[in-house]
Nucleic acid binder design. Structure first.
Lengths: 195, 195
DNA sequence: ATTATACTGTAGCAAGCGATAAAAAAAGGG
DNA sequence: CCCTTTTTTTATCGCTTGCTACAGTATAAT
């Protein structure tokens, strides 16, 4: 099987390098020549392996959700709504401060405002942020059903508030905030917790 | 006075048009040809009146701070720290939802992640966000000195938390949140208010 | 060994980018 | 009216962008 010349680079390693670049500079701020430099391959190899810039970004986005942003779905498995939320903040701060990859959250840094040709990036990232909010809302609804949270709590509002702070933390980190500062913000944010 | 051919466009109107474009598409997502189209002038006129793209962006940024973002400094004049904060949220939501100009806050949308050539935009916007945080911190410190806020309150932490929510609101609006939703988020955020 | 297959390297495409040179046009001062 | 000054117009400049054709090279199957 796999006859023909084998590639002499690792696809996942190259994808990680591309992810880091998109993460740091956004979709539009990342040029293909910068990508090939960082990935250690040349353009035809990139196109053969990933399609084009858009397809490469989508694959990097998938990888982002499965690897560095997996803290989100992991946090949802905590036993109580409060601990879910605390773990969410902790995980977000850990990711955002991790020196092994760029600052902030790719869903925010990747492209909040884009040129007309990259409008799909803005929309796609918006959908993913909305999906995260929806997942958290479901988890809170479950907590209400389990009598973990009071049924007077509005799960949708609470989830929207929490993710708003999360996106805000990403912006703060892009501005150079320290781990201690982000921690303090998350602790203050938790003072709004119901009951 | 003013001899020579007069310009046949209004500088401030053109600047407003440029501001709207930068606001919507970010610095890098806005091309000079798109700018000249929207401003109704051609390139040499733009260069004669504003310098270059960077200088134009800086002037648009100044205008942004003086016109649509003036709600921030206005809010600081409210009599109590709590009312300052409430007015801040109200003003931010009003601006972010205003159909007369693009969604979100230019300090966030303008360029959170940029290509290497536009790194100064990222830094500049970060400095302005930090300046906003510092202004709010000073106001809270004043409130503590006036016995309006308890002296057990940490003005720096509180200011950082509030602006974190503000930047989060900008991200949420970019994702299509409604005015009612943003209002609910700000009300929940105020539940963390000290005392 | 030969052949088919798939990857790599060089070189270059059209299009758009930010920015400008040179000439024509419109005003005021003499 | 002419001359100076400033603007607008037209036509580009050199460079980078995302992308690809072509030739060369390395492997597996036959």
């Amino acid at each position: 099987m796999a006859r023909g010349r084998p590639r002499n680079f690792d696809v996942d390693e190259a994808l990680d390098a591309a992810l880091a670049l998109f993460w740091r500079h956004g979709y539009e701020g990342t040029s293909l020549s910068a990508l090939t430099d960082v990935m250690g391959i040349n353009m035809p190899s990139l196109y053969a392996a990933f399609g084009n810039k858009e397809a490469l970004f989508r694959k990097a986005l998938d990888r982002y959700l499965q690897q560095p942003a997996s803290y989100f779905t992991t946090a949802l498995e905590e036993p109580t709504a409060r601990r879910v939320t605390e773990k969410l903040f902790q995980g977000a701060i850990d990711m955002v401060m991790n020196p092994r990859h760029p600052d902030g959250c790719l869903l925010v840094q990747g492209g909040l405002a884009t040129g007309p040709l990259a409008d799909w990036v803005r929309k796609e990232l918006g959908l993913l942020r909305t999906a995260a909010e929806a997942a958290l809302r479901s988890r809170y609804q479950q907590a209400i059903a389990e009598r973990d949270l009071s049924k007077r709590v509005d799960a949708a509002k609470l989830a929207r508030y929490i993710v708003t702070v999360l996106w805000g933390l990403s912006v703060q980190r892009a501005g150079g905030a320290t781990r201690a500062q982000l921690k303090e913000v998350s602790q203050l944010a938790m003072r709004a917790w119901p009951d």
